[in-house]
Amino acid sequence: MKMTTVIRATLAVSAMAVVATSCNYDNSTPGYTYMDDMYTSPSLEAYSAADEDILKNGMSAQKPVEGTIPRGYHPYEVPNTNEGYAWSKQHSDVVPAGFAAMDPAEGKELYTIFCAHCHGDKGDGNGILVQNEKILGVPGYGSSRLPDITPASAYHVVMYGKGVMGSHASQINYDERWKIIRYVWSLRAEQDGTPDIGESVQVEEEEAPAEEAEATHEETEEHA
């Protein structure tokens, strides 16, 4: 009689111990799922792991075959050299027609996302990273610091980077690059205290004969 009580007590205590220690939240694993077939895709999703024997490094996101171009791709063939940069300052072939007539405000949001943390909200080269002394020597857009830049050379810098600035071509697409550069040009005018290039375009259009003005307008739409 006495023996069975002891066994019972031991059993009860060990059962309690099992219950107490089984409450283990392992936060590093996702845990169980119902009907796993509906949770995990049999086809490869973005970033899903793949078989290392089939895909290099077991990554589903492989580099496209060399020479592949994405839809809406605009070639930029100026080389990433000092000569290429100098060339871009003298030639404006890459600048889309109607650049000056674009609305600078369209690029403001994009500028805030991609440029403002270094170049500053006002384009004075005093963004938050400069204030925090993470990246120093960031130029403002005013003519005193950057006397000879052109929209085409700015595009060159966005594509390839310059100095400590890296290439932003992978993050911003063609249209967005020009929207940003257009906004940068309005900031440059603001820094210099000169009128925005858009204003002179409007004046020209008013002065030009009606037919020509229409032609410019059509051209703008085509490129937009």
């Binding site: 970033y47 996302i113 991609f114 943390h117 990273l129 925090n132 993470k134 890296g166 992978s170 911003i172």
Partner: peptide, 24 residues
């Protein structure tokens, strides 16, 4: 350092996935 989410996760604006930024 107040870097915008979209700076690194730049494909969130255009694509289904937000994009884990590549090392570049």
């Amino acid at each position: 350092n107040q870097i915008d989410c979209n700076y690194c996760h730049s494909s969130a604006r255009h694509s289904k996935t937000s994009g884990i930024p590549s090392a570049n």
